[in-house]
Design a protein around this nucleic acid. Structure first.
Lengths: 209, 209
DNA sequence: AACTATACGGAAAGTCGTTCCGGAACACAA
DNA sequence: TTGTGTTCCGGAACGACTTTCCGTATAGTT
């Protein structure tokens, strides 16, 4: 209670990221940014179990600073995850403003695929049973669902894609495509590819096979 | 090369569990059994990351003994996993011999569900990208596929279930049902439940909906 | 400029995984 | 049973990493 945690956000991951109660000192904010950037990089190269020292060094700060802002390791993982989810979700409206609906949709799906590609290690952590991560899948959907939903709606309104596919299905389909584990086998992936290529884009009203 | 690894089995996980080249000393075999039992328990209570000391204490041996038989942590995980897969798969023929085909199938599915329930933590490890675990999903299928297949065939021959459902689909369906993460949501589970209840058991020839 | 609250850095302490080796236990033969 | 060679056990020792702690440095304020 005394020294209130002034970490990036004190809000629950599922809710809107509330503004911190007290404004952070500028160096603190800068270090937090550096840490998140460094953590993202380190997670990519050394996995989510990258040593704290490695992350701190990469960020150019001491380990004490890391633990000041992210008392638990899961806090750092959550923050990185949310930051990247936000970046990817926000890209939707930017793309939507800069391109035709169909193009925006296509570009965003590529962006989303990139996002998934960097989450190979994180996915395992998310499903590891640690209750600290319970809220993240919900956050994932709450951000990506509407983001893709509006792209899909716009494209459908422009007659470029069919309108009967829920955003959620597309999100899951692509997510499964990018998970080459031994889950469903190639057949599942093929079905999903078919859904995306054949079903989504063309057939805005007609559909064979 | 000099001191050949005399761990539980030197065979590849996907193949048949070959007999060790040299016979183990009885105390060694006993300790291996204790370790596997202890590891199973510890994995259940503390997750797959349970401290080595905890497992060794539970087995009543020193940590040195643990590392003698399972030089890598993944070796222990693999051994526990395979042992439980084997136990569950072997239950199929036992049940088949002791019960009517329909009952045997039902009982085995319950047994399989139990198996999955204890693998919550293991599943995360399996998909963590560690190449040591790459072969396990294949082993999983190579044991459970035929086991369930024969149960399914027998039940189908007795006219108690329909014959057009591959064992693999049932395995995946139940596996998904038992994974309450944020993967597919309740709708997916419902579809799978429907497949199992409605599709599998009744409708051995007819099917509504 | 002086002052205070906040934050930084890295040393130190604690925890856990892994290695190592002296001694105990086993298997086998006589 | 006793002897002998081999295998195996146990836990201390070592190293890597996580986490805490506090003297020092700096941003923000008057």
């Amino acid at each position: 209670m005394v020294t209130e945690n002034t970490a990036p956000n004190g809000a629950d991951p599922a809710g809107a990221p509330a503004r911190p109660q007290r404004r952070l000192r500028v160096d603190a904010q800068r270090n937090i940014d550096s840490l998140l950037q460094a953590a993202k990089t380190a997670f990519g190269t050394s996995g989510v179990d990258a040593p704290a020292k490695e992350i701190a060094d990469l960020a150019g700060v001491g380990v004490g600073t890391l633990y000041r802002h992210f008392p638990q390791r899961s806090d750092l993982v959550k923050a990185v995850f949310q930051r990247e989810v936000d970046a990817c979700a926000d890209a939707a409206s930017a793309l939507s403003a800069a391109h035709e609906p169909g193009v925006a949709l296509e570009k965003w799906l590529h962006r989303y695929t990139e996002f998934l590609a960097t989450k190979r290690g994180l996915a395992a952590a998310l499903h590891s049973g640690d209750p600290a991560f319970d809220a993240l899948p919900g956050y994932f959907m709450s951000r990506f669902g509407p983001a893709l939903g509006s792209l899909l709606d716009a494209a459908a309104a422009a007659g470029e894609v069919r309108a009967d596919i829920p955003a959620k299905d597309v999100l899951y389909a692509v997510a499964h495509l990018c998970m080459p584990g031994a889950d469903e086998g190639p057949a599942f992936s093929m079905r999903m590819v078919a859904l995306l290529i054949d079903g989504l884009r063309h057939g805005a009203g007609t559909r064979d096979s």
